[in-house]
Design a protein around this nucleic acid. Structure first.
Length: 734
DNA sequence: CAGCCATATCTTTTT
DNA sequence: GATATGGCTG
């Protein structure tokens, strides 16, 4: 029996249709990776395609690795020459070879979000722009958006017309690009943009890759943005063998520029496209799938399809109704504990999914308390931690002195008595003489404005030079250790408490072992090679299935994964769907949120537990939220009899704010309502319409006296019922 | 120049 | 509640 007979007829159709554009609409759990891998095998084994001519693109390294592994398993020979990688690393590979044609050096560095922010700050300083009126994050978002749409600084300026703020923004954008180039650096968006630019101006390069990649497959197509679309359509233009796989119902990256039209309008761009729908789900039980279908059908702009399964109905969904976020954590962890004690499931079968990273903390605390192994995916990226970044910047400085940001980051780490003024002066000198920051440092003694400060710079430069000369005689791992010893890095943290230092050192050790891993796995390990690999790593990539731990992550990170037992936490209006999109006047924002919910539900194979808390602390503020509106979209019959509510457990005591809150609550059982004029300090009363800076207008429902302050309950038009302390809320009577 | 304290803002999601 | 920033002081 051939391997293709194990596929269902529709899947087979997708595999056998090898020529021309193909759109595979693959519902959650419908075996799309299976189809893709089999399609690759079919191309090679039955169609005689050279593996070298096949490219598969994914979004994360993890997905790429997984696909590579599975292809290796079913393709007998030559699978290693298939190009399986992410958009970003594909572009890096191309740019490493050809970016000199755009006037960059081929050993460019890649800036992460942190570096970007530093550079933006720098640029603002240079252009004398107040970062209070123009926030870095907004600037970054604007630039990123422009790049996603392939708008150059010049075009941006034209588009700005007479708009003062937009014109300013164009100026920042332009200067930012100039600085990037000066530092020989590209940011994430540039990787795509520059590749497209390269193709546009160098038809020979484009043609080379067009010939090379005669068969292109793109996974998670619904999440591609405009540049990415441009990139693949340029590559596929010659042979038109472009097979894209995606699910419009799982498009959840609009905020990052993903253009859902890429998938919805695929047939318009390629009228000859073959469209195949995979609607049989192999992952979830009937009940879970029903719930998912019932939720997603409330969206309007979607391709019509209904997932079905021939798995049995399975367990009903569980609904876990909690008083507080704390109780939610407690009950979920207790249930997992019980589940694993039962023997059928392991910790790693369980996943906790939530909307925001901030929700992980309270859950983590509970896992620690109960001594259950867990792993948080996302949040602060390993490579974004201070100690790791510092050391990486040493590596970068040694590798390529052109990266001013890296040099400036470490010049005073550990403290060398080099302050901001000195750095500014060197910077000035470097700008005047059009040299890099590091080169300016090397001639510190000749910079007149420095004076005595030069004597502090010389040892630093010497240290770097000495290290650089040692690089070629050492393994990367030893070299890293040499750096740490040479700079006496531990001194940087001598004032921190032991626990924190231990955690940092653990990270440093992990970095060292990553270097060792890299050296072992690579045929020709180089420092630049390592730095490049590191720049494109996402947290999800490190998730391995072998360790027996409960996984905690955001719904976004969970896309593409599956778990036997899924817990969907924090299902409250205002949290999920988020406050931002409830108040947004664009209804499609809510649809995106609903898709996120759909993604969450469809991660579950055997069982799904949905939980929400009536009361939750968010950003140090207690909120009372209604259960999520998405809950109401799931038919009641799909839930098992609600879990009995536990008695409310005591709140954690180590938290003074929480206990203050709790004291307040006990009081609330005998409310002492104030009439309008009883309060001397408040100029509003029950029934009045008030205005809150963030929540807008609302009506005062209740005012309670609480020690030195008043607790005011307001029903806002848009934000729902909120309780807040009068002194913080600064409510204005209307 | 570095260390300390007060403050402001944050949170949606990430390659 | 946490973190980043800014101002002040030694």
């Amino acid at each position: 029996m051939s391997i293709y007979e194990s596929l269902n007829p529709v899947q087979q159709e997708a595999v056998y249709h090898t020529e021309g554009p193909v759109l595979i609409l693959a519902g959650a759990g419908s075996g799309k990776t299976r189809v893709l891998t089999h399609r690759i095998a079919y191309l090679i084994e039955e169609m005689g395609v050279n593996p070298w001519n096949i490219m598969a693109i994914t979004f994360t390294n993890k997905a790429a690795e997984e696909m590579r592994e599975r292809v290796d398993k079913i393709v007998g020979f030559g699978s290693e020459s298939i190009w399986v990688s992410t958009f970003h690393s594909t572009c890096v590979r191309i740019l490493r070879r050809y970016i000199d044609r755009l006037g960059f050096d081929n050993n460019f560095t890649i800036y992460d979000t942190d570096d970007q922010k530093t550079l933006i700050k720098d640029v603002c300083k240079r252009l004398d722009i107040d970062t209070k009126t123009y926030k870095e994050r907004n600037i970054m978002a604007a630039i990123s958006k422009a790049k996603e749409e392939m708008i150059t600084p010049e075009e941006y300026l034209l588009n700005a017309g007479g708009d003062y703020a937009q014109k300013k923004m164009a100026g920042i954008y332009q200067e930012y690009q100039k600085q990037l180039k000066k530092n020989n650096a590209l940011d994430f968006d540039d990787l795509l943009c520059k590749t497209v630019e390269l193709f546009e101006y160098n038809p020979d390069v484009l043609e080379y890759y067009q010939n090379r990649f005669r068969y292109i497959m793109v996974d998670e197509y619904q999440d591609t943005n405009t540049v990415q679309f441009r990139f693949i359509s340029m590559l596929a233009k010659k042979y038109k063998n472009l097979c894209v796989v995606g699910d419009d119902d799982q498009s959840i990256y609009k905020f990052r520029g993903a253009n859902i039209q890429n998938i919805l309008g695929y047939e318009k761009v390629f009228p000859e496209a073959k469209v195949i729908k995979l609607e049989q789900n192999y992952r979830s039980t009937g009940n879970i799938l029903n719930a998912a279908n019932m939720v997603i059908r409330n969206n309007k702009g979607r391709k019509d399809k209904t997932l079905w399964t021939d798995r049995e109905e399975g367990e009903k969904l569980k609904l876990c109704q909690c008083e507080t976020g704390y109780e939610e954590a407690e009950r979920i962890v207790a249930e997992i504990k019980q589940l694993v004690a039962g023997g059928t499931y392991r910790y790693s079968d369980c996943a906790l999914l939530y909307r925001t990273n901030a929700q992980s903390r309270i859950l983590e605390e509970q896992f620690v308390r109960e001594n259950i192994p867990y792993k948080v995916v996302g949040g602060v990226n390993f490579y974004a931690r201070k100690e790791i970044k510092d050391l990486l910047c040493y590596l970068k400085t040694i590798d390529n002195g052109r990266d001013d940001l890296a040099v400036r980051r470490i010049i005073n780490v550990p403290k060398r008595g080099i302050g901001a003024t000195t750095i500014d002066r060197v910077q000035e000198y470097a700008a005047e003489h059009e040299m890099s920051f590091y080169d300016a440092l090397r001639m510190a003694e000749q910079i007149p404005s420095l004076g005595r400060a030069a004597s502090r710079i010389i040892p630093f430069v010497n240290q770097i030079q000495v290290l650089r000369s040692k690089l070629e005689f050492m393994s990367l791992k030893d070299f890293m250790e040499e750096i740490i010893a040479s700079i006496e890095y531990e001194k940087e943290y001598e004032n921190e408490d032991a626990e924190e230092v231990a955690a940092r050192m653990e990270n440093v050790d992990e970095l060292i072992s990553k270097l060792a891993d890299y050296e072992e796995s690579e045929e020709q390990p180089t420092l630049s090679g390592f730095l490049e690999e590191v720049a494109l790593i996402a947290d999800i990539d490190s998730l391995d299935d072998s360790s027996n731990r409960v996984v905690l992550m955001t719904l976004h990170s969970a896309k593409g994964l599956e778990f036997p037992k899924v817990f969907l936490c924090g299902m409250e209006d205002g949290l999920f769907p988020s406050y931002m999109c409830i108040t947004s006047d664009d209804p499609s924002d809510l649809e995106e949120e609903r898709r996120l919910c759909y993604v969450g539900i469809t991660r579950a194979m055997d069982s799904l537990t949905i939980s929400f808390a009536k009361q939750r602390m968010i950003r140090g503020e207690t909120q009372w939220n209604k259960p999520s509106r998405f809950l109401k979209e799931i038919p009641f019959e799909l839930f098992e009899g609600m879990i009995k509510e536990n008695k409310i457990k005591e709140m954690p005591k180590n938290n003074s704010y929480a206990s203050a809150k709790q004291a307040f609550q006990t009081r609330a059982f005998q409310p002492k309502a104030f009439a309008v004029n009883d309060s001397k300090e408040l100029d509003y009363g029950v029934g009045d319409t008030v205005f809150h800076i963030k929540f807008g207008t609302g009506i005062v429902k209740e005012i309670l006296e609480g020690g030195r302050d008043y607790e005011v309950t307001v029903e806002f038009e848009k934000a729902g019922v909120r309780k807040m302390f009068a002194s913080f809320a600064k409510l204005k009577k209307l």
